[in-house]
Design a protein around this nucleic acid. Sequence first.
DNA 1: GATTTTAATGAACAGATGTTCAATATCTAA
DNA 2: TTAGATATTGAACATCTGTTCATTAAAATC
Lengths: 193, 193
Amino acid sequence: MRTTDLRIIKTKQALHAALLTLLSQKPLEQISIAEICREAKVNRGTFYLHYEQKEGLFEEYFQEIMEDLYQSYEEPYRAVTTLDTHQLDPNTIRIFHHIERFKMFYRIVFSKNVPLTYYYMLFDGIYALLKRDITTHHEHQMAEQISIDYYSAYQANAIIGLIIQWYRGDFSDSVSILNQQLAAILKNVRGDG
Amino acid sequence: MRTTDLRIIKTKQALHAALLTLLSQKPLEQISIAEICREAKVNRGTFYLHYEQKEGLFEEYFQEIMEDLYQSYEEPYRAVTTLDTHQLDPNTIRIFHHIERFKMFYRIVFSKNVPLTYYYMLFDGIYALLKRDITTHHEHQMAEQISIDYYSAYQANAIIGLIIQWYRGDFSDSVSILNQQLAAILKNVRGDG
DNA sequence: GATTTTAATGAACAGATGTTCAATATCTAA
DNA sequence: TTAGATATTGAACATCTGTTCATTAAAATC
């Protein structure tokens, strides 16, 4: 099963389009595989040839969204060549902008009946970006008993914690409030103690 | 439908026992409602009288586990009357002990095909505990532009980030390593900048 | 203990899932 | 352009889901 086969491409396109159409009408949990196939005019058996669950189909979209996240993150790097302590600086990382841009999508990702997979995809994305920065720019600043993996997981999930809180308020706060909150938390935590 | 009715209690007990039996054989995703009912010798219609999904049944267990989390957290309070900066002190909060104790359970909670509900239940539990502490003991220490809700969400999910990393290593690190990592991260983050 | 209230049952239903199969259509490569 | 490879189809199957309903059984209440 090569992915260049025109038949495969057409089938997947049809399924993608069908999923998008249905997602504009109801949440993922309420959409059945049979329904997607009817909409896409694709045999149900064909669906199972390419995916195990409807979630697998959804994940293909997620990859595209993650591309945007990576680009949002890279943006400040392209502008300035050497930023010293830009790690976790809310004005340079642009994660909240990215979430805001795809908030319809993230409403699904954070809804409670959806599998944890999507959460992990987001986590892995942010984790990888932070870890790269921590490794490159901050190694010397860290106490050597701290595992970089644990530290990255800590920081990545902390940011997602803010996003969860944001989501639960239906994303009604502005991006700049989120950036300001993150900045204040990081500043505060460094200042006290 | 009052919960004191003996018939209800018996039915729920049977379903609980059946779920436990099946969970020792396979993960939750692979267990069907029909299967639980066969095992419990309860009519499938009766199941839907009490729960919407098998996840609802699972959640009843979760409540008991959360009770243990709360108690784990309260423990140091009972021992010492006034701890000053015990908030987030890994030696006094005993979250990692709790996770370790129920690691079989948390392997399900963090498995990727399970709905986000359980994650949120854990998040809400830790969030509530931290928020109470932050409100009571640390209000004066915080920059006033920080929202306590965002701050609590940040800290609660950061800890879960460590737990995710721990889970992904199949909980092979010891509890004291986790405590030490958290302590080091908190110390490091306060020390630099 | 009799009466009322209500939970549990079994049966049936339309629709979904996940899988298999031979037949067919459509692609790729020579 | 054709021959070979393979993706898609439709049909069928057992099983699961979610729901309804009259009937039965078992509680609570008096």
